Computed example of a mutant assay.
Amino acid sequence: MRVLSTFSGISAASVAWKHQGFQIVGYCEPSPFQSHVLNQRCGATSPKYLPAAKGFEAKKYSGITGGTVINFGDIEQITDDDLRALGPVDILEGGSPCQSFSIAGFRGGLSDSRGNLMLAFARLALRMKEINKLKLVVWENGKGVLSDETNGFGCLLGALAGGRPPVEPPGRGFTTAGHLLVGRPEEPLEEVTIAWRVLDSQRLGVAQRRERVFVVCSYDPAIDAGAVLFESEGEGWSAETRGGTEEDPAGSSEGRVGGLIWPPVVGTLNASAAGMSRTAGQGNELDFVIITHGGKVVRRPTPLECERLQGFPDGYTDVWFEGRPAEDHHRYRGLGNSMTVQAMEYIGHRINLIQAEAYPLRVAA
């Protein structure tokens, strides 16, 4: 399946999905460091469009050369001609900035320009539905979006469903899982299905508590978004494939997080030195105390350990940036803002499974 990746960051989707048979046909990431990672690890070009804001000066991208997969950069500047040049695209994926829905970002919601990028993502999806025959949308964000006072999540659901009015939450916020059917029974081909579910990375095989909301929207009448996100009985994702067990879903961190003995599962990595700059109210950041063998050394995780906690290959963010090896703070930020690879592997696995059920002859061919 052909994929356009947006808000790509360092692209957990590429690491997770390429070996599952997906083809990334384009990226959309304007940040300088992340763009260098995409270039050196995924063969992406320098960003085509840059935001007119401080921090995106052209000189910051001078180290990017070559590239065979386009990086559009700023999502809001992608044109219809750009989309037509891509040809058919099956999946649009992306995790728009979560800062405006988090405690660390002061929960500005849609009053924050970063929050509004979720609606730019939805508008892009509708354009691609018409131009690229888009079938599926995969979106990710922090759990806080479900209780956002500006109802950004409801606005996103309505927008993905065809520019309809916002969906109102049943109470003070949305539940941690849901399933919508939007359309008219007399016109089944116009039906849109949308499902969402909170996934915790520690249940998918990494030693990190990381709860994130995943939304799947299907414009394909043969594929129900709910079937992608919700398993039937006995159909669950096996933690053992990632080294975990029922008692220890994340698996032993020995040998995976640098000889770590405490804590066995760390708190949520974020963009501020991978969680070491704690904002008031984020008690889980106290978990970022690593005690090595013998209890003699107390320290924070290294960038290498954070790569493992996010499911990336060792050294993935150790790239050449600004004329020298990337500094730790760039690597921490890129990793803290990323999706977990295993979470995207789970989504990819479910898409392939449901795709095979819906189109057995096509998949067999």
Rank of each mutant, 00 (worst) to 15 (best):
H19D: 15
P169F: 02
G258A: 14
L353K: 10
L286P: 01
R84G: 09
E240P: 00
D248F: 04
W262G: 01
G255E: 15
V216P: 02
G334W: 03
V15E: 06
H293W: 12
T340N: 07
D90P: 14
R300W: 10
R203P: 01
R278W: 05
G105E: 11
W17M: 12
A53L: 07
E254A: 08
R350E: 03
T241D: 11
P301Q: 15
P263W: 01
V192G: 13
I78G: 13
T292D: 13
L86A: 09
P51W: 06
V25G: 08
N270E: 13
E254L: 14
K135I: 04
G152E: 02
I70P: 08
G66P: 04
L126E: 07
G87S: 11
G323P: 05
G205H: 07
D220K: 05
G348S: 12
V198G: 10
H330R: 07
G142L: 03
D318T: 00
R2I: 07
K54S: 09
W320A: 03
T79G: 14
D112A: 12
A12G: 04
E233C: 03
V289H: 09
K143T: 08
G158R: 01
L38Y: 05
Q34N: 11
N141E: 03
S338M: 09
L180C: 00
H329D: 13
I75K: 01
V265T: 13
I103A: 09
N39W: 07
F321E: 09
V363A: 10
V25I: 14
E149W: 02
S31I: 11
E322D: 06
G243W: 04
T241C: 05
E211D: 11
P51K: 04
N116C: 12
G67Q: 07
A273Y: 06
S35E: 05
E254H: 12
S238A: 12
N141L: 06
D74N: 11
V228K: 01
L83P: 06
I78M: 05
F72D: 10
V298S: 06
S272N: 15
Y332S: 06
T175C: 06
S96L: 00
A326E: 01
L260H: 09
H349L: 07
T268G: 02
L353A: 08
L160K: 02
R184T: 11
E93G: 00
R84L: 13
G315Y: 04
A343V: 03
Q208H: 03
V341D: 03
Q23D: 12
R299C: 04
E357W: 00
R197C: 10
V15N: 02
E345G: 13
L304T: 14
N284T: 13
G94E: 02
A356N: 14
R212W: 01
A122P: 12
V145Q: 05
E149K: 15
A274S: 09
Q202L: 10
R331F: 10
V215C: 03
V137N: 04
N71S: 06
R308S: 14
